[in-house]
């Protein structure tokens, strides 16, 4: 059974009196433990597609299924609960909370979202911080970390809730080449180690090559699906 399934999904945005079609009749099925990439130029609909899968937005028409649940009819609260339980997010700008240390940023979803007991929480946080190689930097605040380090913490935060699916919107866009590859390698390793599905968007052709399945988008349509031979 597919982890993610989109059926006839379209998304329109209202720009004043004009309606702009961001996604047109999208049909996708993504299996568990995949490492998938959406590629395409700016405005092709990559972020919109990730937002729909991530229950951050609702389609204008069509159906979105994630982990067997139809998520496009969820209320705001149901969406938030679903995201907290089943999804992880990695952002282009890292989006770490500046007032919290690396450790506390990873801890945040466990306290505020999943309400995990303190002892179990500590074990889990250290496990994931070690997995991304940031255990020794755990007490540093985001302002004291480099871009690559921040994104490692963000990966750790996305994985700490044991999500089925991690969505990453341009996770390497704000990183230099070396750091970008390290982050993608890390994501790949996490996918392998924790059996997590990763879907990320990028417009960097070198990064794209790291994905197992590559969907190419243009003007809101999937124009190509490529399965890499690794």
């Amino acid at each position: 059974m597919s982890l993610v399934e989109l059926k006839h999904v379209t998304k329109n945005y209202q720009m004043g009196e004009m309606s702009v079609r961001a996604l047109k009749n999208i049909e996708i099925e993504i299996d568990e433990q995949s490492f998938v990439s959406f590629v395409g130029p700016s405005g092709s609909g990559k972020t919109t597609l990730l937002n729909l899968i991530g229950c951050l937005d609702k389609p204008s028409s069509g159906e979105v299924f994630v982990n067997g649940k139809q998520v496009n009819n969820f209320s705001n609260k149901e969406s938030a609960l679903f995201r907290g339980q089943h999804l992880g997010f990695i952002f282009q700008n890292f989006n770490l909370l500046p007032v919290l240390s690396a450790y506390e940023n990873v801890e945040y979803p466990l306290i505020m979202v999943q309400n995990i007991p303190a002892k179990k929480r500590k074990e889990r946080i250290m496990h994931y911080l070690e997995a991304v190689g940031m255990a020794d930097q755990k007490d540093k605040y985001p302002s004291q970390l480099s871009g690559g380090q921040k994104q490692r913490v963000a990966v750790s935060r996305a994985l700490v809730t044991d999500p089925k699916l991690v969505l990453a919107d341009e996770p390497t866009a704000n990183l230099d080449h070396v750091s970008a590859f390290k982050v993608i390698e890390l994501m790949r390793q996490m996918q392998h180690d924790f059996k997590t599905t990763f879907i990320f968007s990028t417009h960097d052709p070198k990064i794209v090559k790291e994905a197992e399945i590559i969907y190419t988008l243009e003007d809101g349509e999937i124009v190509d699906k490529e399965i890499a031979t690794l």
Binding site: K77, A80, G88, N95, V113
Partner: peptide, 16 residues
């Protein structure tokens, strides 16, 4: 605003 977006995206309920 961006921080609010982040904490909401990772599952923080509106009430929190």
């Amino acid at each position: 605003v961006s921080e609010i977006g982040t904490i909401s995206a990772i599952g923080t309920l509106p009430s929190k």
